[in-house]
Protein backbone atom coordinates (compact mmCIF):
# COMPACT_ATOMS: atom_id res chain seq x y z
CA UNK A 1 0.00 0.00 0.00
CA UNK A 2 2.66 2.51 0.97
CA UNK A 3 4.74 1.44 -2.02
CA UNK A 4 1.80 2.23 -4.26
CA UNK A 5 1.60 5.66 -2.74
CA UNK A 6 5.28 6.26 -3.33
CA UNK A 7 4.92 4.99 -6.90
CA UNK A 8 1.90 7.14 -7.58
CA UNK A 9 3.71 10.16 -6.19
CA UNK A 10 6.77 9.36 -8.24
CA UNK A 11 4.78 8.92 -11.44
CA UNK A 12 2.91 12.16 -10.88
CA UNK A 13 5.96 14.16 -10.00
CA UNK A 14 8.06 12.77 -12.86
CA UNK A 15 5.33 13.48 -15.36
CA UNK A 16 4.80 17.03 -14.17
CA UNK A 17 8.52 17.77 -14.08
CA UNK A 18 8.96 16.23 -17.48
CA UNK A 19 6.11 18.16 -18.99
CA UNK A 20 7.55 21.32 -17.54
CA UNK A 21 11.20 20.83 -18.37
CA UNK A 22 10.80 19.51 -21.89
CA UNK A 23 10.62 23.00 -23.40
CA UNK A 24 13.57 24.00 -21.24
CA UNK A 25 15.53 21.09 -22.63
CA UNK A 26 14.67 22.38 -26.06
CA UNK A 27 16.03 25.80 -25.12
CA UNK A 28 19.18 24.10 -23.90
CA UNK A 29 19.42 22.39 -27.26
CA UNK A 30 19.23 25.79 -28.89
CA UNK A 31 21.90 27.08 -26.54
CA UNK A 32 24.19 24.19 -27.38
CA UNK A 33 23.73 24.75 -31.06
CA UNK A 34 24.36 28.45 -30.55
CA UNK A 35 27.59 27.66 -28.76
CA UNK A 36 28.73 25.54 -31.70
CA UNK A 37 27.74 28.42 -33.97
CA UNK A 38 29.78 30.82 -31.79
CA UNK A 39 26.60 32.67 -30.89
CA UNK A 40 25.06 33.70 -27.59
CA UNK A 41 21.78 31.96 -28.24
CA UNK A 42 18.38 32.42 -26.63
CA UNK A 43 17.64 32.46 -22.91
CA UNK A 44 16.91 29.21 -21.15
CA UNK A 45 13.14 29.74 -21.09
CA UNK A 46 12.94 30.76 -24.73
CA UNK A 47 10.88 27.80 -25.89
CA UNK A 48 8.37 28.46 -23.14
CA UNK A 49 8.24 32.11 -24.22
CA UNK A 50 7.67 30.95 -27.78
CA UNK A 51 4.83 28.67 -26.80
CA UNK A 52 3.29 31.38 -24.67
CA UNK A 53 3.50 33.79 -27.53
CA UNK A 54 1.90 31.31 -29.90
CA UNK A 55 -0.96 30.81 -27.50
CA UNK A 56 -1.46 34.54 -27.23
CA UNK A 57 -2.03 34.75 -30.96
CA UNK A 58 -5.40 34.71 -32.59
CA UNK A 59 -6.74 31.36 -33.68
CA UNK A 60 -6.82 31.48 -37.45
CA UNK A 61 -9.03 29.40 -39.63
CA UNK A 62 -7.28 26.76 -41.65
CA UNK A 63 -8.61 24.57 -44.44
CA UNK A 64 -10.08 21.29 -43.28
CA UNK A 65 -10.13 22.48 -39.67
CA UNK A 66 -11.98 19.60 -38.06
CA UNK A 67 -9.60 16.95 -39.22
CA UNK A 68 -6.55 19.01 -38.47
CA UNK A 69 -7.68 19.94 -35.00
CA UNK A 70 -8.82 16.41 -34.27
CA UNK A 71 -5.52 14.87 -35.29
CA UNK A 72 -3.56 17.60 -33.61
CA UNK A 73 -5.19 16.99 -30.27
CA UNK A 74 -5.01 13.26 -30.76
CA UNK A 75 -1.32 13.72 -31.37
CA UNK A 76 -0.85 15.74 -28.23
CA UNK A 77 -2.94 13.42 -26.07
CA UNK A 78 -1.09 10.42 -27.42
CA UNK A 79 2.33 11.95 -26.75
CA UNK A 80 1.43 12.75 -23.17
CA UNK A 81 -0.35 9.46 -22.68
CA UNK A 82 2.51 7.41 -24.05
CA UNK A 83 5.05 9.08 -21.81
CA UNK A 84 2.74 8.69 -18.81
CA UNK A 85 2.14 5.05 -19.60
CA UNK A 86 5.86 4.49 -20.04
CA UNK A 87 6.72 5.96 -16.66
CA UNK A 88 3.90 4.13 -14.92
CA UNK A 89 4.82 0.83 -16.53
CA UNK A 90 8.42 1.26 -15.44
CA UNK A 91 7.39 1.52 -11.81
CA UNK A 92 4.31 -0.64 -11.68
CA UNK A 93 4.38 -4.17 -13.11
CA UNK A 94 1.80 -4.21 -15.83
CA UNK A 95 1.02 -7.17 -17.96
CA UNK A 96 2.58 -7.08 -21.44
CA UNK A 97 3.54 -3.47 -21.01
CA UNK A 98 6.27 -3.64 -23.67
CA UNK A 99 3.71 -4.69 -26.27
CA UNK A 100 1.32 -1.97 -25.20
CA UNK A 101 4.15 0.54 -25.50
CA UNK A 102 4.93 -0.66 -29.01
CA UNK A 103 1.31 -0.24 -30.00
CA UNK A 104 1.03 3.18 -28.39
CA UNK A 105 4.11 4.38 -30.19
CA UNK A 106 2.92 2.99 -33.49
CA UNK A 107 -0.34 4.90 -33.14
CA UNK A 108 1.54 8.00 -32.07
CA UNK A 109 3.83 7.85 -35.08
CA UNK A 110 0.91 7.20 -37.40
CA UNK A 111 -0.92 10.24 -36.09
CA UNK A 112 2.23 12.23 -36.58
CA UNK A 113 2.50 11.32 -40.25
CA UNK A 114 -1.22 11.53 -40.95
CA UNK A 115 -1.42 15.03 -39.60
CA UNK A 116 0.17 16.77 -42.60
CA UNK A 117 -1.93 14.71 -44.99
CA UNK A 118 -5.20 16.00 -43.59
CA UNK A 119 -4.18 19.54 -44.37
CA UNK A 120 -4.68 20.23 -48.02
CA UNK A 121 -1.41 22.10 -48.28
CA UNK A 122 0.86 20.73 -51.02
CA UNK A 123 4.03 21.78 -49.22
CA UNK A 124 2.97 19.98 -46.07
CA UNK A 125 2.15 16.92 -48.12
CA UNK A 126 5.56 16.89 -49.78
CA UNK A 127 7.09 16.92 -46.34
CA UNK A 128 4.72 14.18 -45.21
CA UNK A 129 5.51 11.87 -48.11
CA UNK A 130 9.17 12.25 -47.31
CA UNK A 131 8.51 11.57 -43.64
CA UNK A 132 6.45 8.47 -44.40
CA UNK A 133 9.40 6.70 -45.95
CA UNK A 134 11.63 7.50 -43.05
CA UNK A 135 9.04 6.64 -40.42
CA UNK A 136 8.26 3.37 -42.17
CA UNK A 137 11.86 2.24 -41.98
CA UNK A 138 12.18 3.52 -38.48
CA UNK A 139 8.91 2.07 -37.18
CA UNK A 140 9.63 -1.36 -38.56
CA UNK A 141 13.06 -1.29 -37.00
CA UNK A 142 11.59 -0.17 -33.71
CA UNK A 143 9.10 -3.00 -33.90
CA UNK A 144 11.75 -5.61 -34.67
CA UNK A 145 14.11 -4.28 -32.04
CA UNK A 146 11.44 -4.43 -29.34
CA UNK A 147 10.39 -7.88 -30.48
CA UNK A 148 13.97 -9.10 -30.28
CA UNK A 149 14.23 -7.48 -26.90
CA UNK A 150 11.31 -9.52 -25.66
CA UNK A 151 12.78 -12.58 -27.28
CA UNK A 152 16.29 -12.13 -25.90
CA UNK A 153 15.28 -11.22 -22.39
CA UNK A 154 12.13 -13.25 -22.19
CA UNK A 155 10.38 -10.33 -20.54
CA UNK A 156 7.22 -8.54 -21.59
CA UNK A 157 7.13 -6.33 -18.51
CA UNK A 158 8.90 -3.01 -18.81
CA UNK A 159 9.28 -3.01 -15.06
CA UNK A 160 11.27 -6.27 -15.12
CA UNK A 161 14.11 -4.96 -17.23
CA UNK A 162 16.17 -3.86 -14.18
CA UNK A 163 16.32 -7.47 -13.05
CA UNK A 164 17.68 -9.09 -16.23
CA UNK A 165 21.27 -9.77 -17.07
CA UNK A 166 22.61 -7.46 -19.81
CA UNK A 167 24.07 -9.50 -22.64
CA UNK A 168 26.09 -7.98 -25.51
CA UNK A 169 23.21 -8.70 -27.87
CA UNK A 170 20.90 -6.75 -25.57
CA UNK A 171 23.28 -3.81 -25.51
CA UNK A 172 23.40 -3.67 -29.30
CA UNK A 173 19.62 -3.66 -29.33
CA UNK A 174 19.70 -0.69 -26.99
CA UNK A 175 22.09 0.99 -29.41
CA UNK A 176 19.61 0.41 -32.25
CA UNK A 177 16.92 2.00 -30.12
CA UNK A 178 19.14 5.02 -29.62
CA UNK A 179 19.45 5.44 -33.38
CA UNK A 180 15.72 4.98 -33.82
CA UNK A 181 15.17 7.61 -31.19
CA UNK A 182 17.57 10.01 -32.83
CA UNK A 183 15.95 9.58 -36.22
CA UNK A 184 12.43 9.93 -34.83
CA UNK A 185 13.32 13.25 -33.32
CA UNK A 186 13.84 14.66 -36.81
CA UNK A 187 17.28 16.07 -36.23
CA UNK A 188 19.92 16.53 -38.93
CA UNK A 189 20.54 14.60 -41.10
CA UNK A 190 17.02 13.23 -40.71
CA UNK A 191 15.07 16.48 -40.63
CA UNK A 192 13.83 15.89 -44.16
CA UNK A 193 10.19 16.42 -43.32
CA UNK A 194 10.67 19.82 -41.79
CA UNK A 195 13.22 20.89 -44.37
CA UNK A 196 11.85 24.35 -44.76
CA UNK A 197 14.43 25.55 -47.29
CA UNK A 198 13.72 22.47 -49.38
CA UNK A 199 10.20 23.54 -50.22
CA UNK A 200 8.63 21.00 -47.89
CA UNK A 201 7.84 22.42 -44.54
CA UNK A 202 5.91 19.53 -43.12
CA UNK A 203 2.96 20.40 -41.00
CA UNK A 204 4.66 23.52 -39.67
CA UNK A 205 3.78 25.45 -42.77
CA UNK A 206 0.08 25.03 -42.21
CA UNK A 207 -0.33 25.77 -38.52
CA UNK A 208 -0.18 29.09 -36.79
CA UNK A 209 -0.94 30.53 -33.39
CA UNK A 210 -2.24 28.26 -30.64
CA UNK A 211 -2.49 25.27 -32.97
CA UNK A 212 1.18 25.56 -33.79
CA UNK A 213 1.84 25.94 -30.07
CA UNK A 214 0.07 22.65 -29.39
CA UNK A 215 2.04 20.95 -32.12
CA UNK A 216 5.38 22.30 -30.98
CA UNK A 217 4.71 21.21 -27.43
CA UNK A 218 3.44 17.75 -28.38
CA UNK A 219 6.46 17.27 -30.58
CA UNK A 220 8.80 18.08 -27.72
CA UNK A 221 7.04 15.56 -25.49
CA UNK A 222 7.39 12.96 -28.22
CA UNK A 223 11.08 13.76 -28.50
CA UNK A 224 11.48 13.24 -24.78
CA UNK A 225 9.75 9.88 -25.00
CA UNK A 226 12.01 8.74 -27.80
CA UNK A 227 15.03 9.59 -25.72
CA UNK A 228 13.73 8.06 -22.52
CA UNK A 229 12.98 4.63 -23.97
CA UNK A 230 16.51 3.77 -25.16
CA UNK A 231 18.10 5.28 -22.05
CA UNK A 232 15.88 3.18 -19.83
CA UNK A 233 16.47 0.01 -21.87
CA UNK A 234 20.20 0.57 -21.72
CA UNK A 235 20.68 1.39 -18.07
CA UNK A 236 17.88 -0.62 -16.48
CA UNK A 237 19.87 -3.88 -16.14
CA UNK A 238 22.71 -2.01 -14.41
CA UNK A 239 20.59 -0.37 -11.75
CA UNK A 240 18.81 -3.32 -10.24
CA UNK A 241 15.71 -1.38 -9.17
CA UNK A 242 12.93 0.28 -11.15
CA UNK A 243 12.96 3.38 -9.09
CA UNK A 244 16.69 3.92 -9.55
CA UNK A 245 16.35 3.07 -13.23
CA UNK A 246 13.65 5.67 -13.70
CA UNK A 247 15.44 8.36 -11.76
CA UNK A 248 18.73 7.71 -13.52
CA UNK A 249 16.98 7.82 -16.89
CA UNK A 250 15.42 11.13 -16.00
CA UNK A 251 18.82 12.47 -15.01
CA UNK A 252 20.48 11.18 -18.16
CA UNK A 253 17.75 12.63 -20.36
CA UNK A 254 19.09 16.23 -20.37
CA UNK A 255 22.62 15.00 -20.95
CA UNK A 256 21.48 12.93 -23.89
CA UNK A 257 19.50 15.88 -25.16
CA UNK A 258 22.63 18.01 -25.14
CA UNK A 259 24.63 15.34 -26.94
CA UNK A 260 21.95 14.97 -29.60
CA UNK A 261 21.85 18.71 -30.03
CA UNK A 262 25.59 18.80 -30.52
CA UNK A 263 25.46 15.97 -33.00
CA UNK A 264 22.68 17.60 -34.98
CA UNK A 265 24.74 20.76 -35.29
CA UNK A 266 27.56 18.84 -36.93
CA UNK A 267 25.51 17.22 -39.66
CA UNK A 268 23.84 18.50 -42.78
CA UNK A 269 20.51 17.31 -44.05
CA UNK A 270 20.15 14.13 -46.00
CA UNK A 271 17.75 13.56 -48.84
CA UNK A 272 14.64 11.39 -48.94
CA UNK A 273 16.12 8.92 -51.39
CA UNK A 274 19.39 8.65 -49.49
CA UNK A 275 18.43 8.65 -45.83
CA UNK A 276 16.16 5.57 -45.62
CA UNK A 277 18.58 3.50 -47.67
CA UNK A 278 21.62 4.36 -45.62
CA UNK A 279 19.60 3.85 -42.45
CA UNK A 280 18.45 0.46 -43.61
CA UNK A 281 22.03 -0.52 -44.30
CA UNK A 282 23.12 0.57 -40.85
CA UNK A 283 20.22 -1.22 -39.18
CA UNK A 284 20.79 -4.46 -41.05
CA UNK A 285 24.41 -4.51 -39.96
CA UNK A 286 23.46 -3.89 -36.35
CA UNK A 287 20.70 -6.49 -36.43
CA UNK A 288 23.05 -9.10 -37.87
CA UNK A 289 25.56 -8.36 -35.14
CA UNK A 290 23.03 -8.63 -32.38
CA UNK A 291 21.63 -11.92 -33.71
CA UNK A 292 25.10 -13.39 -34.12
CA UNK A 293 26.04 -12.26 -30.64
CA UNK A 294 22.85 -13.76 -29.27
CA UNK A 295 23.56 -17.09 -30.94
CA UNK A 296 27.19 -17.07 -29.85
CA UNK A 297 26.50 -16.27 -26.22
CA UNK A 298 23.52 -18.56 -25.88
Amino acid sequence: MSLDFINAGLVLSSITTLLFIVPILDSIERKVKAAIHSRIGPPILQTWYDIRKLFAKKLSVIPNPFHVVFFLFLYMMLSIMSITYFITAVLVPMWNSIMVLIILITILQTTFIVLPFVTSNPFAIIGATREVLLVLVNEIVFFIAMALLIFFSGETYLSSLPYIHPTPAYLILAAILFIVGYVSCGRQPFDIAEAEPEIASGILVELTGPLLGVFVYANLVRRALFKLIPVYVLIAPFTGSNMYALITSLIILPILWVIYAGLAALFGRSRVDIAPVSLLKLYSILFSITIILYLVFK
Binding site: A35, I36, S38, R39, I40, G262, A265, L266
Partner: peptide
Protein backbone atom coordinates in the same frame (compact mmCIF):
# COMPACT_ATOMS: atom_id res chain seq x y z
CA UNK B 1 33.50 22.33 -36.75
CA UNK B 2 33.62 21.67 -33.01
CA UNK B 3 37.30 22.51 -32.97
CA UNK B 4 36.63 25.80 -34.76
CA UNK B 5 33.79 26.64 -32.39
CA UNK B 6 35.93 25.97 -29.33
CA UNK B 7 38.77 28.06 -30.65
CA UNK B 8 36.54 30.94 -31.69
CA UNK B 9 34.38 31.21 -28.63
CA UNK B 10 31.44 33.53 -28.64
CA UNK B 11 31.44 36.34 -31.17
CA UNK B 12 27.96 37.80 -31.05
CA UNK B 13 27.03 40.50 -28.63
Amino acid sequence: ALEIALKTGRVTR
